[in-house]
Design a protein around this nucleic acid. Structure first.
Lengths: 230, 230
DNA sequence: TCCGCACTTTGCGCAGCATCAAACAGAATT
DNA sequence: AATTCTGTTTGATGCTGCGCAAAGTGCGGA
Protein backbone atom coordinates (compact mmCIF):
# COMPACT_ATOMS: atom_id res chain seq x y z
CA UNK A 1 0.00 0.00 0.00
CA UNK A 2 1.20 3.50 -0.85
CA UNK A 3 0.94 6.14 1.82
CA UNK A 4 1.37 9.68 0.80
CA UNK A 5 4.30 11.47 2.27
CA UNK A 6 2.29 14.60 2.85
CA UNK A 7 0.20 12.93 5.53
CA UNK A 8 3.06 12.44 7.94
CA UNK A 9 5.44 15.12 6.76
CA UNK A 10 4.29 17.77 9.27
CA UNK A 11 4.85 15.53 12.26
CA UNK A 12 7.76 16.57 14.41
CA UNK A 13 8.84 12.98 14.56
CA UNK A 14 9.87 13.16 10.93
CA UNK A 15 11.24 16.65 10.89
CA UNK A 16 14.72 16.85 9.50
CA UNK A 17 14.24 13.83 7.30
CA UNK A 18 14.62 13.90 3.54
CA UNK A 19 11.71 13.06 1.28
CA UNK A 20 13.55 10.07 -0.04
CA UNK A 21 14.16 8.67 3.44
CA UNK A 22 10.59 9.33 4.39
CA UNK A 23 9.29 7.51 1.35
CA UNK A 24 11.60 4.66 2.13
CA UNK A 25 10.20 4.37 5.62
CA UNK A 26 6.63 4.72 4.48
CA UNK A 27 7.08 2.01 1.90
CA UNK A 28 7.35 -0.47 4.74
CA UNK A 29 4.26 0.73 6.52
CA UNK A 30 0.80 -0.70 6.38
CA UNK A 31 -2.24 1.28 7.36
CA UNK A 32 -5.28 0.00 9.17
CA UNK A 33 -8.52 1.10 10.74
CA UNK A 34 -10.06 0.12 14.05
CA UNK A 35 -13.63 0.62 15.06
CA UNK A 36 -14.50 2.09 18.40
CA UNK A 37 -13.99 -0.37 21.20
CA UNK A 38 -11.62 -2.59 19.27
CA UNK A 39 -8.01 -3.15 20.30
CA UNK A 40 -4.93 -2.37 18.22
CA UNK A 41 -2.74 -4.52 20.42
CA UNK A 42 -3.26 -6.46 23.61
CA UNK A 43 -1.21 -6.51 26.79
CA UNK A 44 1.12 -9.48 26.98
CA UNK A 45 1.07 -10.39 23.29
CA UNK A 46 4.33 -10.36 21.30
CA UNK A 47 5.26 -6.89 20.16
CA UNK A 48 5.51 -7.49 16.44
CA UNK A 49 4.69 -3.98 15.31
CA UNK A 50 5.01 -0.39 16.30
CA UNK A 51 2.50 2.25 15.29
CA UNK A 52 1.69 5.81 14.42
CA UNK A 53 -1.79 7.17 15.01
CA UNK A 54 -3.07 9.19 12.06
CA UNK A 55 -6.58 9.79 13.15
CA UNK A 56 -8.93 9.11 16.01
CA UNK A 57 -8.12 8.46 19.65
CA UNK A 58 -6.78 5.54 21.65
CA UNK A 59 -6.68 4.66 25.31
CA UNK A 60 -3.74 2.62 26.53
CA UNK A 61 -4.59 0.58 29.60
CA UNK A 62 -2.74 -1.77 31.89
CA UNK A 63 -4.32 -4.45 33.99
CA UNK A 64 -2.67 -5.45 37.23
CA UNK A 65 -2.30 -9.11 38.20
CA UNK A 66 -5.21 -8.68 40.61
CA UNK A 67 -7.53 -7.29 37.97
CA UNK A 68 -7.31 -3.56 38.61
CA UNK A 69 -7.14 -1.42 35.52
CA UNK A 70 -5.46 1.92 34.94
CA UNK A 71 -5.22 4.17 31.91
CA UNK A 72 -1.58 4.69 31.12
CA UNK A 73 -2.18 7.37 28.56
CA UNK A 74 -4.34 8.66 25.78
CA UNK A 75 -2.88 8.51 22.28
CA UNK A 76 -3.61 11.50 20.06
CA UNK A 77 -3.16 11.81 16.28
CA UNK A 78 0.50 12.13 15.35
CA UNK A 79 1.69 10.12 18.34
CA UNK A 80 3.91 7.10 18.01
CA UNK A 81 2.69 4.21 20.13
CA UNK A 82 3.40 0.62 20.96
CA UNK A 83 7.15 0.86 20.75
CA UNK A 84 7.64 -1.84 23.31
CA UNK A 85 10.36 -3.51 21.29
CA UNK A 86 12.45 -0.37 21.01
CA UNK A 87 12.44 -0.38 24.78
CA UNK A 88 13.79 -3.84 25.09
CA UNK A 89 10.52 -5.59 25.68
CA UNK A 90 9.28 -8.64 23.89
CA UNK A 91 5.60 -8.03 24.53
CA UNK A 92 3.25 -5.08 24.83
CA UNK A 93 3.05 -3.76 28.37
CA UNK A 94 -0.50 -2.52 27.85
CA UNK A 95 -3.58 -2.73 25.67
CA UNK A 96 -4.54 -0.02 23.17
CA UNK A 97 -8.28 0.47 22.69
CA UNK A 98 -9.91 2.74 20.16
CA UNK A 99 -11.97 5.35 22.00
CA UNK A 100 -13.16 6.54 18.63
CA UNK A 101 -12.83 5.09 15.18
CA UNK A 102 -9.13 5.37 14.37
CA UNK A 103 -6.63 5.11 11.56
CA UNK A 104 -3.02 4.15 12.05
CA UNK A 105 0.19 3.07 10.37
CA UNK A 106 2.09 -0.02 11.47
CA UNK A 107 5.64 -1.22 10.92
CA UNK A 108 7.24 -4.53 11.88
CA UNK A 109 9.34 -4.02 14.99
CA UNK A 110 12.22 -5.75 13.28
CA UNK A 111 12.66 -2.62 11.22
CA UNK A 112 13.11 -0.32 14.20
CA UNK A 113 16.87 -0.59 14.64
CA UNK A 114 17.27 -0.50 10.90
CA UNK A 115 15.36 2.79 10.67
CA UNK A 116 17.26 4.28 13.52
CA UNK A 117 20.62 3.35 12.12
CA UNK A 118 19.67 4.62 8.71
CA UNK A 119 18.32 7.79 10.12
CA UNK A 120 19.80 9.09 13.33
CA UNK A 121 17.54 12.11 13.44
CA UNK A 122 14.67 9.69 13.87
CA UNK A 123 16.42 8.34 16.95
CA UNK A 124 16.75 11.82 18.34
CA UNK A 125 13.07 12.50 17.70
CA UNK A 126 12.03 9.24 19.23
CA UNK A 127 14.10 9.99 22.26
CA UNK A 128 12.40 13.32 22.63
CA UNK A 129 8.99 11.77 22.23
CA UNK A 130 9.61 9.22 24.87
CA UNK A 131 11.30 11.83 27.02
CA UNK A 132 8.14 13.86 26.99
CA UNK A 133 6.23 10.82 27.94
CA UNK A 134 8.55 10.22 30.86
CA UNK A 135 8.04 13.75 31.98
CA UNK A 136 4.28 13.32 31.82
CA UNK A 137 4.62 10.21 33.92
CA UNK A 138 6.65 12.10 36.50
CA UNK A 139 4.11 14.87 36.57
CA UNK A 140 1.46 12.32 37.25
CA UNK A 141 3.51 10.75 40.03
CA UNK A 142 4.10 14.14 41.55
CA UNK A 143 0.41 14.97 41.42
CA UNK A 144 -0.62 11.66 42.90
CA UNK A 145 1.91 12.03 45.69
CA UNK A 146 1.12 15.53 46.72
CA UNK A 147 -2.27 16.67 45.49
CA UNK A 148 -5.76 15.90 46.60
CA UNK A 149 -8.17 14.19 44.27
CA UNK A 150 -10.04 17.28 43.14
CA UNK A 151 -6.87 18.94 41.85
CA UNK A 152 -5.77 15.80 40.07
CA UNK A 153 -9.08 15.40 38.33
CA UNK A 154 -9.07 19.06 37.36
CA UNK A 155 -5.60 18.65 35.88
CA UNK A 156 -6.60 15.54 33.98
CA UNK A 157 -9.66 17.21 32.50
CA UNK A 158 -7.62 20.25 31.55
CA UNK A 159 -5.03 18.13 29.79
CA UNK A 160 -7.75 16.32 27.89
CA UNK A 161 -9.25 19.62 26.88
CA UNK A 162 -5.93 20.88 25.60
CA UNK A 163 -5.13 17.73 23.68
CA UNK A 164 -8.55 16.76 22.49
CA UNK A 165 -10.76 19.79 22.91
CA UNK A 166 -13.06 20.82 20.07
CA UNK A 167 -14.63 24.26 20.33
CA UNK A 168 -18.38 24.16 20.67
CA UNK A 169 -20.91 26.89 21.34
CA UNK A 170 -20.81 26.69 25.10
CA UNK A 171 -17.16 25.73 25.59
CA UNK A 172 -14.74 22.97 24.69
CA UNK A 173 -16.01 19.48 23.95
CA UNK A 174 -13.79 16.50 24.73
CA UNK A 175 -13.65 14.97 21.30
CA UNK A 176 -14.12 11.30 22.11
CA UNK A 177 -16.12 9.05 24.34
CA UNK A 178 -14.83 9.17 27.85
CA UNK A 179 -16.51 7.76 30.91
CA UNK A 180 -16.20 8.72 34.57
CA UNK A 181 -14.54 5.38 35.02
CA UNK A 182 -11.87 6.39 32.50
CA UNK A 183 -11.16 9.63 34.30
CA UNK A 184 -10.98 7.72 37.56
CA UNK A 185 -8.43 5.36 36.06
CA UNK A 186 -6.35 8.28 34.85
CA UNK A 187 -6.27 9.94 38.24
CA UNK A 188 -6.08 7.02 40.60
CA UNK A 189 -9.47 7.34 42.21
CA UNK A 190 -12.92 5.79 41.86
CA UNK A 191 -15.67 6.57 39.41
CA UNK A 192 -17.85 7.56 42.35
CA UNK A 193 -15.55 10.30 43.42
CA UNK A 194 -15.17 11.55 39.85
CA UNK A 195 -18.91 11.56 39.42
CA UNK A 196 -19.38 13.56 42.61
CA UNK A 197 -16.75 16.06 41.57
CA UNK A 198 -18.15 16.56 38.09
CA UNK A 199 -21.63 16.98 39.54
CA UNK A 200 -20.33 19.62 41.91
CA UNK A 201 -18.55 21.39 39.08
CA UNK A 202 -21.62 21.21 36.92
CA UNK A 203 -23.54 22.90 39.71
CA UNK A 204 -21.02 25.72 39.62
CA UNK A 205 -21.21 25.99 35.85
CA UNK A 206 -17.67 24.80 35.16
CA UNK A 207 -18.53 21.80 33.05
CA UNK A 208 -21.45 20.03 31.51
CA UNK A 209 -21.67 16.27 31.74
CA UNK A 210 -23.46 13.55 29.91
CA UNK A 211 -23.13 9.91 29.13
CA UNK A 212 -19.47 9.41 28.11
CA UNK A 213 -19.41 13.07 27.23
CA UNK A 214 -17.84 16.12 28.71
CA UNK A 215 -18.05 19.79 27.83
CA UNK A 216 -15.75 22.21 29.59
CA UNK A 217 -17.44 25.56 30.03
CA UNK A 218 -14.96 27.48 32.13
CA UNK A 219 -11.37 26.47 31.60
CA UNK A 220 -10.03 29.33 33.68
CA UNK A 221 -11.97 28.32 36.74
CA UNK A 222 -10.86 24.75 36.19
CA UNK A 223 -7.26 25.89 35.92
CA UNK A 224 -7.65 27.71 39.23
CA UNK A 225 -8.96 24.51 40.80
CA UNK A 226 -6.01 22.64 39.36
CA UNK A 227 -3.69 25.16 40.98
CA UNK A 228 -5.23 24.43 44.32
CA UNK A 229 -7.42 27.49 44.77
CA UNK A 230 -10.91 26.70 45.87
CA UNK B 1 41.72 14.05 31.64
CA UNK B 2 42.10 10.49 30.45
CA UNK B 3 39.52 8.00 31.52
CA UNK B 4 40.27 4.40 31.00
CA UNK B 5 38.02 2.55 28.65
CA UNK B 6 37.87 -0.46 30.92
CA UNK B 7 35.87 1.42 33.51
CA UNK B 8 32.83 1.90 31.34
CA UNK B 9 33.26 -0.95 28.89
CA UNK B 10 31.05 -3.41 30.78
CA UNK B 11 28.09 -1.04 30.87
CA UNK B 12 25.22 -2.11 28.68
CA UNK B 13 24.94 1.42 27.47
CA UNK B 14 28.16 1.05 25.56
CA UNK B 15 27.74 -2.51 24.43
CA UNK B 16 28.22 -2.92 20.71
CA UNK B 17 30.54 0.00 20.46
CA UNK B 18 34.05 -0.26 19.13
CA UNK B 19 37.02 0.59 21.35
CA UNK B 20 37.92 3.45 19.07
CA UNK B 21 34.44 4.97 19.28
CA UNK B 22 34.41 4.51 23.00
CA UNK B 23 37.75 6.24 23.38
CA UNK B 24 36.50 9.05 21.22
CA UNK B 25 33.49 9.54 23.45
CA UNK B 26 35.51 9.27 26.63
CA UNK B 27 38.00 11.84 25.38
CA UNK B 28 35.27 14.45 25.74
CA UNK B 29 34.29 13.45 29.24
CA UNK B 30 35.37 15.01 32.47
CA UNK B 31 35.13 13.20 35.75
CA UNK B 32 34.20 14.67 39.10
CA UNK B 33 33.48 13.79 42.66
CA UNK B 34 30.70 14.98 44.95
CA UNK B 35 30.62 14.67 48.69
CA UNK B 36 27.57 13.38 50.46
CA UNK B 37 24.82 15.96 50.55
CA UNK B 38 26.16 18.00 47.66
CA UNK B 39 24.26 18.45 44.41
CA UNK B 40 25.44 17.46 40.95
CA UNK B 41 22.85 19.64 39.28
CA UNK B 42 19.97 21.74 40.50
CA UNK B 43 16.36 21.86 39.34
CA UNK B 44 15.71 24.74 36.97
CA UNK B 45 19.31 25.48 36.05
CA UNK B 46 20.39 25.23 32.41
CA UNK B 47 21.15 21.68 31.38
CA UNK B 48 24.70 22.07 30.17
CA UNK B 49 25.87 18.55 30.83
CA UNK B 50 24.69 14.99 30.95
CA UNK B 51 26.22 12.42 33.25
CA UNK B 52 27.13 8.86 33.99
CA UNK B 53 27.41 7.67 37.56
CA UNK B 54 30.53 5.57 38.15
CA UNK B 55 30.36 5.16 41.84
CA UNK B 56 28.22 6.07 44.80
CA UNK B 57 24.51 6.82 44.91
CA UNK B 58 22.34 9.80 43.99
CA UNK B 59 18.79 10.83 44.79
CA UNK B 60 16.95 12.83 42.15
CA UNK B 61 14.26 15.03 43.67
CA UNK B 62 11.65 17.43 42.35
CA UNK B 63 10.13 20.25 44.28
CA UNK B 64 6.60 21.33 43.46
CA UNK B 65 5.71 25.03 43.19
CA UNK B 66 4.13 24.82 46.63
CA UNK B 67 7.21 23.37 48.25
CA UNK B 68 6.41 19.68 48.41
CA UNK B 69 9.26 17.40 47.54
CA UNK B 70 9.26 13.98 45.90
CA UNK B 71 12.04 11.58 45.01
CA UNK B 72 11.88 10.89 41.32
CA UNK B 73 14.42 8.12 41.37
CA UNK B 74 17.60 6.78 42.83
CA UNK B 75 20.63 6.72 40.53
CA UNK B 76 22.84 3.66 40.82
CA UNK B 77 26.37 3.16 39.45
CA UNK B 78 26.33 2.63 35.68
CA UNK B 79 23.20 4.74 35.19
CA UNK B 80 23.06 7.65 32.82
CA UNK B 81 21.43 10.68 34.40
CA UNK B 82 20.59 14.29 33.75
CA UNK B 83 19.80 13.91 30.12
CA UNK B 84 17.32 16.70 30.13
CA UNK B 85 18.63 18.16 26.92
CA UNK B 86 18.26 14.96 24.96
CA UNK B 87 14.62 15.12 25.94
CA UNK B 88 14.06 18.53 24.53
CA UNK B 89 14.40 20.43 27.76
CA UNK B 90 16.59 23.44 28.36
CA UNK B 91 16.88 22.99 32.10
CA UNK B 92 17.08 20.16 34.58
CA UNK B 93 13.66 19.02 35.75
CA UNK B 94 15.03 17.92 39.10
CA UNK B 95 17.93 18.13 41.51
CA UNK B 96 20.49 15.35 41.93
CA UNK B 97 21.89 14.98 45.45
CA UNK B 98 24.67 12.65 46.48
CA UNK B 99 23.32 10.21 49.08
CA UNK B 100 26.87 8.92 49.42
CA UNK B 101 30.16 10.18 48.14
CA UNK B 102 29.98 9.72 44.40
CA UNK B 103 32.06 9.75 41.26
CA UNK B 104 30.69 10.58 37.85
CA UNK B 105 31.52 11.47 34.27
CA UNK B 106 30.11 14.53 32.56
CA UNK B 107 29.74 15.55 28.93
CA UNK B 108 28.55 18.83 27.47
CA UNK B 109 24.97 18.40 26.25
CA UNK B 110 25.96 19.93 22.94
CA UNK B 111 27.72 16.68 22.15
CA UNK B 112 24.66 14.51 22.60
CA UNK B 113 23.27 14.64 19.06
CA UNK B 114 26.78 14.37 17.74
CA UNK B 115 27.39 11.17 19.67
CA UNK B 116 24.08 9.72 18.66
CA UNK B 117 24.59 10.44 15.00
CA UNK B 118 28.09 9.05 15.11
CA UNK B 119 26.96 6.03 16.92
CA UNK B 120 23.45 4.77 16.33
CA UNK B 121 23.86 1.87 18.70
CA UNK B 122 24.24 4.42 21.46
CA UNK B 123 20.86 5.84 20.48
CA UNK B 124 19.30 2.43 20.68
CA UNK B 125 20.85 1.86 24.11
CA UNK B 126 19.76 5.24 25.34
CA UNK B 127 16.27 4.58 24.13
CA UNK B 128 16.23 1.33 26.03
CA UNK B 129 17.55 2.98 29.15
CA UNK B 130 14.93 5.63 29.10
CA UNK B 131 12.33 3.08 28.13
CA UNK B 132 13.09 1.16 31.26
CA UNK B 133 12.76 4.32 33.22
CA UNK B 134 9.38 4.99 31.68
CA UNK B 135 8.29 1.54 32.62
CA UNK B 136 9.42 2.11 36.19
CA UNK B 137 7.41 5.30 36.26
CA UNK B 138 4.33 3.47 35.02
CA UNK B 139 4.81 0.79 37.62
CA UNK B 140 4.90 3.46 40.26
CA UNK B 141 1.76 5.08 38.89
CA UNK B 142 0.02 1.75 38.86
CA UNK B 143 1.03 1.05 42.43
CA UNK B 144 -0.01 4.45 43.66
CA UNK B 145 -3.37 4.13 41.94
CA UNK B 146 -4.29 0.72 43.11
CA UNK B 147 -2.28 -0.36 46.11
CA UNK B 148 -2.44 0.55 49.74
CA UNK B 149 0.48 2.24 51.42
CA UNK B 150 1.94 -0.85 53.07
CA UNK B 151 2.31 -2.67 49.76
CA UNK B 152 3.86 0.35 48.10
CA UNK B 153 6.42 0.78 50.86
CA UNK B 154 7.21 -2.92 50.76
CA UNK B 155 7.78 -2.68 47.01
CA UNK B 156 9.98 0.35 47.37
CA UNK B 157 12.14 -1.29 50.03
CA UNK B 158 12.41 -4.43 47.95
CA UNK B 159 13.55 -2.49 44.91
CA UNK B 160 16.13 -0.67 46.99
CA UNK B 161 17.38 -3.96 48.32
CA UNK B 162 17.71 -5.39 44.83
CA UNK B 163 19.50 -2.36 43.45
CA UNK B 164 21.55 -1.32 46.43
CA UNK B 165 21.59 -4.27 48.79
CA UNK B 166 24.87 -5.36 50.31
CA UNK B 167 24.92 -8.72 52.06
CA UNK B 168 25.54 -8.50 55.76
CA UNK B 169 25.44 -11.13 58.46
CA UNK B 170 21.76 -10.76 59.31
CA UNK B 171 20.41 -9.89 55.88
CA UNK B 172 20.76 -7.24 53.19
CA UNK B 173 21.93 -3.75 54.09
CA UNK B 174 20.72 -0.79 52.01
CA UNK B 175 24.05 0.57 50.94
CA UNK B 176 23.52 4.29 51.44
CA UNK B 177 21.96 6.71 53.85
CA UNK B 178 18.22 6.71 53.49
CA UNK B 179 15.73 8.30 55.83
CA UNK B 180 12.09 7.50 56.51
CA UNK B 181 11.35 10.81 54.87
CA UNK B 182 13.06 9.59 51.69
CA UNK B 183 11.03 6.42 51.60
CA UNK B 184 7.91 8.47 52.17
CA UNK B 185 8.79 10.68 49.21
CA UNK B 186 9.32 7.64 47.03
CA UNK B 187 5.97 6.13 47.87
CA UNK B 188 3.74 9.14 48.18
CA UNK B 189 3.05 8.99 51.88
CA UNK B 190 4.32 10.63 55.06
CA UNK B 191 7.35 9.84 57.16
CA UNK B 192 5.03 9.09 60.07
CA UNK B 193 3.30 6.32 58.22
CA UNK B 194 6.60 4.89 57.00
CA UNK B 195 7.97 4.96 60.51
CA UNK B 196 4.94 3.14 61.85
CA UNK B 197 5.17 0.50 59.14
CA UNK B 198 8.87 -0.11 59.64
CA UNK B 199 8.37 -0.37 63.37
CA UNK B 200 5.66 -2.93 62.82
CA UNK B 201 7.87 -4.88 60.44
CA UNK B 202 10.75 -4.73 62.87
CA UNK B 203 8.47 -6.22 65.49
CA UNK B 204 7.84 -9.13 63.14
CA UNK B 205 11.53 -9.56 62.39
CA UNK B 206 11.33 -8.51 58.75
CA UNK B 207 13.69 -5.55 58.93
CA UNK B 208 15.99 -3.76 61.30
CA UNK B 209 15.98 0.00 61.41
CA UNK B 210 18.28 2.74 62.53
CA UNK B 211 19.02 6.34 61.87
CA UNK B 212 19.15 6.62 58.07
CA UNK B 213 19.84 2.93 57.96
CA UNK B 214 17.89 -0.11 56.94
CA UNK B 215 18.68 -3.80 57.06
CA UNK B 216 16.30 -6.21 55.39
CA UNK B 217 16.18 -9.49 57.29
CA UNK B 218 13.47 -11.39 55.47
CA UNK B 219 13.09 -10.52 51.82
CA UNK B 220 10.66 -13.33 51.17
CA UNK B 221 8.22 -12.12 53.78
CA UNK B 222 8.60 -8.60 52.42
CA UNK B 223 7.89 -9.88 48.92
CA UNK B 224 4.74 -11.53 50.21
CA UNK B 225 3.66 -8.24 51.74
CA UNK B 226 4.36 -6.51 48.43
CA UNK B 227 2.11 -9.02 46.71
CA UNK B 228 -0.70 -8.09 48.99
CA UNK B 229 -0.68 -11.02 51.39
CA UNK B 230 -0.82 -10.12 55.00
C1' DT C 1 -42.22 2.07 21.08
C1' DC C 2 -40.64 -0.58 24.48
C1' DC C 3 -37.08 -2.94 26.81
C1' DG C 4 -32.71 -3.71 28.75
C1' DC C 5 -28.14 -2.52 29.34
C1' DA C 6 -24.47 0.38 30.52
C1' DC C 7 -23.26 4.46 32.54
C1' DT C 8 -24.18 7.74 36.07
C1' DT C 9 -25.78 9.78 40.32
C1' DT C 10 -26.32 9.96 45.16
C1' DG C 11 -26.47 8.49 50.06
C1' DC C 12 -24.32 6.42 54.00
C1' DG C 13 -20.87 4.43 56.95
C1' DC C 14 -16.33 3.17 57.73
C1' DA C 15 -11.20 3.07 57.74
C1' DG C 16 -6.92 4.08 56.17
C1' DC C 17 -3.93 7.54 56.49
C1' DA C 18 -2.80 12.39 57.12
C1' DT C 19 -2.29 15.95 60.42
C1' DC C 20 -1.06 17.76 64.73
C1' DA C 21 1.68 17.24 68.72
C1' DA C 22 5.19 15.82 71.75
C1' DA C 23 8.61 12.96 73.47
C1' DC C 24 12.77 10.43 72.38
C1' DA C 25 17.48 8.96 70.71
C1' DG C 26 21.63 8.98 68.27
C1' DA C 27 25.20 11.82 66.19
C1' DA C 28 27.79 15.84 65.88
C1' DT C 29 29.55 20.02 67.97
C1' DT C 30 31.26 22.70 71.75
C1' DA D 1 30.25 15.91 79.34
C1' DA D 2 26.80 19.01 78.06
C1' DT D 3 24.23 20.88 74.27
C1' DT D 4 22.16 21.13 69.99
C1' DC D 5 20.42 19.24 65.96
C1' DT D 6 18.38 16.08 63.10
C1' DG D 7 15.94 12.08 62.43
C1' DT D 8 12.68 8.75 64.59
C1' DT D 9 8.92 7.00 67.35
C1' DT D 10 4.40 7.06 69.08
C1' DG D 11 -0.14 8.80 70.45
C1' DA D 12 -4.56 11.15 69.60
C1' DT D 13 -7.78 12.96 66.44
C1' DG D 14 -10.25 13.79 62.36
C1' DC D 15 -11.17 13.94 57.48
C1' DT D 16 -10.89 12.44 52.82
C1' DG D 17 -12.23 9.44 49.83
C1' DC D 18 -13.39 4.41 49.26
C1' DG D 19 -16.71 0.54 49.45
C1' DC D 20 -21.16 -0.76 49.16
C1' DA D 21 -25.76 -0.19 47.72
C1' DA D 22 -29.56 1.32 45.24
C1' DA D 23 -31.93 4.27 42.31
C1' DG D 24 -31.90 7.05 38.12
C1' DT D 25 -31.22 7.94 33.10
C1' DG D 26 -29.82 8.07 28.40
C1' DC D 27 -28.96 5.12 24.51
C1' DG D 28 -29.16 1.39 21.34
C1' DG D 29 -31.44 -2.75 19.87
C1' DA D 30 -35.48 -5.36 18.72
Amino acid sequence: MRIDRSIVKPLSLFSGMSDADLDQILSHATSARVAQGEAVFVQGTPANHFFLLLNGRLKVTQVTPDGQQIIVRVVHPGDLFGFAKALQRADYPGTAFAAAESLYLAWPTALWSFFVEQNPSLAVSALQTIGNRLEEAHTRIREMSTQEVERRVAHAVLRLTEKAGKPEDGGMRIDFQISRQDIAEMTGTTLHTVSRLLSAWEGRGLVEGGRQKLLVRDMKALARLAEGEK
